[in-house]
Design a protein around this nucleic acid. Sequence first.
DNA 1: AATACGGTCAACCGCCGAGAG
DNA 2: CCTCTCGGCGGTTGACCGTAT
Length: 292
Amino acid sequence: MGRSHQCLLDGRNKGAWTSNEDKILTDYVKVHGEGKWNNVAKKTGLKRSGKSCRLRWRNYLKPDIKRGNISNDEEELIIRLHKLLGNRWSLIAGRLPGRTDNEIKNYWNTTLAKRAKDFKMKVCTPIGNVNEVPRTMCNANVKLTTQVVLVDAAVQSDENQYFTYNLSIGPSTENYMSRKMEYQFNDASSSSLPQLKDHDDATDFLMDFNVDDVCKFLETEIVQMNDDKVSPNGGGEGGGDEGDGDSSFLKKLAEAEKESSLDFQSLASSFLESAEEWPPISLNILAFNQEK
DNA sequence: AATACGGTCAACCGCCGAGAG
DNA sequence: CCTCTCGGCGGTTGACCGTAT
């Protein structure tokens, strides 16, 4: 694997390390400890840059490094930490003893990212209309003219697949709700609606509303705010069963915010910002939900 | 058997911040 | 302050390897 052809550039070796170079570096670190990497070349005659020495030691030669065979537990931890931290590989690696940032990064880019993509392609079909609320989530056929943002998606394993997403919906960045849901697929090839898994309260730090809350919010608040000619209780594109005014999301949001003394607005705003970095996967999820 | 292709992962690159002088 | 060095980090590259055609 990796680069094997050594070449000499500016008097320095580049490319794969030889076992002899490894020994020289290992011996040096045993005597002098880590750090002062630029001294390695001076004191040992090794034709490598300080950076290259440091990298070789930290990613390969260091005695406590675990290599290969990332366990299911480790994989799940990587997925969860990546949800939380993004591409901050060194932070993620810091919570996985013996694993290096480079290894985590490689594992993510090759195995996990690909798996998530394959899973998405397999299970979901784009419908091309992000403004349509999936009927399985909503009793009425409501036109959604607001933001629907998916900020997260992940697949745990082939045998036990799930995906998690945060759905942020609202007429503006001032008024919206966020809900995290984790779905379990018993059969990835099935087009039926997946089962909702239990929440992980530790990471679910936004408000926890059930699907009915989402539906009622969509049917009342959004239609009302975006189409003067459509009453909040039916008509227009929508119609169907609606919630009453008491169940409005905005009221609940205000109450919850008051009770918990948390700034949900800021929390959700930061989520929306990070969502910009994700691929436009929301279409696919919506399409899947619309399947029925 | 030969070739093409895609996955893996070690290593490199460029950027950045901290700290010393 | 300014400059320089060093180390850390995330993104990218490219050689190797297994598999498909």
